[in-house]
Nucleic acid binder design. Sequence first.
RNA 1: GGGCCAGUAGCUCAGCGGUAGAGCAGGGGACUCUUAAUCCCUUGGCCGAGAGUUCGAAUCUCUCCUGGCUCACCA
Length: 529
Amino acid sequence: MTSGHVAAFWADEEARLLDPARPHVVRDSKTPSGAVPISALRGPVISDALTRTFRAHGLDVRFVYTIDDYDPMDSQSMREKAGMAEHMGKPLCTIPSPDPSVAPDFAEYHAARFIALFAGLGITPEFYRMRDLYRSGALDKQIDLVLRNAEAIRAIHKRIANVDHEAGWLPISVICENCGRIGTTLATDYDGNTVAYVCRLDYVEWAQGCGHGGRISPFKGNSKLLWNEQWCAQWDHFGVTYEEGGKDLLTAGGSRDRSNEIYREVFRREPPLGLAHEFFLFGGKKMATSKDIGAKATDLVAIYPPELTRFLMLRTHPKRHIEFDPAGMTLPRLMDEYDRCADDYLRDHMTDFAKTWRLSQVSPDPSPPPAYRARFGTVANWLQIPSITPEKEAGREKAAALDDRELRDLHVRIELARQWLDRWAPEEAKFSVSQTVPQIEFTKDQRRYLVEIKELVGKVRDPEEMQNQLYEYAKKAGLVNEEGKPRRDAFAAIYLAFIGKPIGPRAGMLLTSLEPEFVRRRLDAVAIP
RNA sequence: GGGCCAGUAGCUCAGCGGUAGAGCAGGGGACUCUUAAUCCCUUGGCCGAGAGUUCGAAUCUCUCCUGGCUCACCA
């Protein structure tokens, strides 16, 4: 290895930062409070790709994922939903399930969904629910440590983030014994066994406490550490050595800085390494704000094949933002690029593109891509021509029958292309027979040609034969160039007459796939000025 | 105000110290059947601006400009 900076694949660069002599724990987490938009998958996909890469480097790695189901319900949008207002401020895991037949409580309802979603994407960490960690007492040691150092922590908050908590403040939230809320309580005065607390009516804006107060043990699930301190407690509990995160958290003076400082000073340990990833922007916006955008983003995960979702997250360096808009030519471009990476993989596993392709697969140890893959845009064209059977057409293109894997791959593309044509394809990419007669000025030659081919309609049924006849008729009609070949405007006349655009699918197929009576009427209509 | 990211061919981007690249779009051609597809060829860039380091900078350093995101309450 030479001196100086060597540009390497980003995941390999991260792997080199880790000490190979010791075991490692990668961590990520999520609050189960709603549907997962596609943008929220960037973090988990990156963490998973890093875990796979670390293992490939021979490192001993666990991938731990915590479900923050002890967090208080604070979502403004939930507050407006019927029956939810009374639950504001309660731990997510004590709020009723939207559908008890699916999951027993609100948190589990959403957690079950994203666990399944992750599994479908090949992301399979060890899941831990915060309710279990707290109630079992697994974090009691860390809670005691935090409470005994509350003053030092308060000073760190003041110094790093310029947040001034009142004197006596403790960085935990007690669950109110009277109303069950966790977001509304202020705790003080730790004596080694219990804390004093008050459930304040106006402690936070998004929920109202009940005014109850008393003393209670903060252990065995009676309380929850605040965000920064809970972070440290989990690092300590699991021995986390690597945790990537969004730049909203990893910014200077931000949340991660505070936690790192607390971890060093109070827990006397070195905080995990981890890169900060840029955001995944949706049409220029961060999403979630707009329900419309958020909903679309959730749908996408169901529509895109899992490897394409992973690819979308991994092909861009984590430190660069992804500007994503599913409309227009985005999908064909994405698929083409995916295919280019697959080709790279077939040639050489060690290039950056090849690594990206491999990490995009659901399986950590995938079989190579099929050698024949129909191009996405082509498949979309096939679907728009009634006389074409994609499987047959693909076989013709490959010049051999497709094997099982190639067929499966084709069918995935067919389904995706249907969605694309239906939702996102620009008009130029679509061709359909216009129902009204296009207002086009045809030349005299073109009109004569259109009249003459009328006698073929209904008589010639075979697309190939029709194609040949159209060619011959063009010569007969004198629509030829110097070499005696038909000119472009011959076939363009057909397309303009039926599709309204000068290009389209093979004319022979187009005309034989339509009702003869309809074809004759249309030819009459356009040929008569 | 702090932080991060971007500014390279018409578009989307790759390259990150050694004679400017890809895909798409545009132009031309081949397949003695147009279009599409496929294949071949091709046009096209003072690499945001300025200064510095270097034998050499799109690449490193500094300053600036433009755009985007984000943190400054909670999680």
